[in-house]
Simulated assay, not measured.
Amino acid sequence: MRNKAVATPTRTKEILDTYGFAFKKSLGQNFLIDVNILKNIIEHAGIDRESGAIEIGPGIGALTEQLAIHADRVVAFEIDQRLLPILENTLEAYQNVSVINQDILQADVREVMELKFKEGQPVKVVANLPYYITTPILMKLLMDRLPVESITVMIQKEVAERMAASPNSKSYGSLSIAVQYYTEAEVAMTVPKTVFMPQPNVDSSVLHLKMRHVPPVEVENEEFFFDLVQATFGQRRKTLMNNLARHFKATMDKQQIRVRLDAAGIDPGRRGESLSMEEFAELARHFYEK
């Protein structure tokens, strides 16, 4: 018979006490203690009996257990060696889970997918990510262009809002463009800090990213495009002209920048936050030199 779900305050405390586990602040460990929230995450992720699931940072197995119940197979990457014996215990009833003791930023995820999932199987990433390393992890997954259908992650509320933001909003910036270039992003739900142990200082949100097969705009050089976008947000209160003049000061004067902005049909007095992705692509077309 299965024990009580891992994601309850009493069971979590019991597991931590049994193993004498101490949270490592440096790894941003906050464990979920609410089964209903986990079931909601799995629903938003669209996990079913056909799905393969990749989890990052399983902790003591709260989300892993729910994924094992709902998915065909689960692969979880855990960096903290101290958690391996705990996971072995909490997940012993599930034969469809593999735990890999590796830093996701160093892992060859594509190779792991080939080894662990069936050919052609729909694979989704589902995770409760450590706040301090959310952006590097997501950008690695996106830039590696992994063959996954979607990424559904619990992250800091403010970061989720930035990733899903639209132009002309306070949250919109270079991160919004980077994420939305690869995915369709939406904030699926907000999660109060009270459902974590230990409690973080801020609320969280579940962000659902549906992978795009092709980016929404065509750019000649992606690295240049993202650099240019970042430059326009260099100092948020400054105009495009000022930010671009600062960025290109070694290669262009203001007159040359103005000519390119005019050619792109973009007013130099605008700010980066007012530009759509299409306008950024247009800007990149006129500034890119092979």
Rank of each mutant, 00 (worst) to 15 (best):
residue 229 V to H: 02
residue 211 M to L: 15
residue 136 P to W: 09
residue 208 H to Y: 06
residue 156 Q to G: 08
residue 193 K to V: 14
residue 149 E to I: 00
residue 217 V to N: 08
residue 178 A to N: 02
residue 157 K to R: 15
residue 199 Q to G: 03
residue 226 F to L: 10
residue 152 T to E: 03
residue 163 M to H: 07
residue 142 L to A: 04
residue 234 G to P: 01
residue 205 S to P: 08
residue 140 K to Q: 12
residue 154 M to G: 11
residue 136 P to F: 11
residue 194 T to G: 15
residue 177 I to G: 04
residue 203 D to C: 12
residue 181 Y to F: 15
residue 233 F to I: 02
residue 155 I to L: 10
residue 185 A to L: 08
residue 140 K to V: 07
residue 192 P to N: 08
residue 188 A to D: 09
residue 164 A to E: 10
residue 172 Y to N: 01
residue 145 R to G: 04
residue 173 G to F: 10
residue 230 Q to D: 07
residue 162 R to K: 15
residue 191 V to P: 12
residue 145 R to F: 04
residue 147 P to T: 03
residue 216 P to E: 00
residue 140 K to T: 12
residue 207 L to V: 10
residue 189 M to C: 13
residue 187 V to M: 10
residue 147 P to A: 01
residue 178 A to R: 10
residue 160 A to D: 03
residue 221 N to L: 10
residue 225 F to N: 03
residue 210 K to I: 14
residue 165 A to S: 11
residue 146 L to W: 09
residue 214 V to M: 13
residue 220 E to I: 05
residue 218 E to I: 04
residue 157 K to A: 15
residue 168 N to V: 06
residue 203 D to I: 04
residue 180 Q to E: 00
residue 185 A to H: 08
residue 155 I to N: 09
residue 230 Q to N: 07
residue 177 I to S: 05
residue 186 E to C: 06
residue 149 E to A: 07
residue 158 E to C: 13
residue 220 E to S: 08
residue 186 E to W: 07
residue 203 D to P: 09
residue 178 A to Q: 07
residue 168 N to I: 09
residue 164 A to Y: 05
residue 190 T to M: 14
residue 204 S to K: 13
residue 178 A to Y: 06
residue 226 F to I: 08
residue 231 A to R: 00
residue 192 P to K: 03
residue 218 E to D: 13
residue 200 P to M: 04
residue 224 F to I: 04
residue 188 A to M: 13
residue 222 E to D: 12
residue 194 T to Y: 15
residue 183 T to V: 02
residue 167 P to I: 03
residue 146 L to V: 12
residue 191 V to M: 11
residue 169 S to G: 06
residue 225 F to A: 04
residue 150 S to E: 12
residue 199 Q to H: 08
residue 188 A to I: 08
residue 175 L to I: 12
residue 140 K to Y: 13
residue 234 G to E: 12
residue 201 N to C: 04
residue 164 A to W: 09
residue 212 R to Y: 09
residue 210 K to N: 13
residue 218 E to M: 07
residue 142 L to P: 06
residue 165 A to Y: 11
residue 217 V to E: 03
residue 150 S to T: 13
residue 181 Y to N: 06
residue 182 Y to V: 08
residue 203 D to Y: 10
residue 139 M to L: 15
residue 166 S to L: 15
residue 147 P to C: 03
residue 143 M to T: 14
residue 160 A to K: 04
residue 168 N to W: 05
residue 143 M to C: 03
residue 172 Y to D: 00
residue 201 N to E: 13
residue 188 A to R: 03
residue 152 T to H: 02
residue 161 E to I: 00
residue 227 D to A: 02
residue 141 L to V: 06
residue 180 Q to P: 10
residue 138 L to Y: 02
residue 207 L to H: 07
residue 191 V to A: 09
residue 230 Q to S: 11
residue 166 S to T: 14
residue 169 S to W: 09
residue 222 E to V: 13
residue 227 D to W: 01
residue 183 T to S: 06
residue 174 S to D: 05
residue 171 S to A: 15
residue 170 K to D: 14
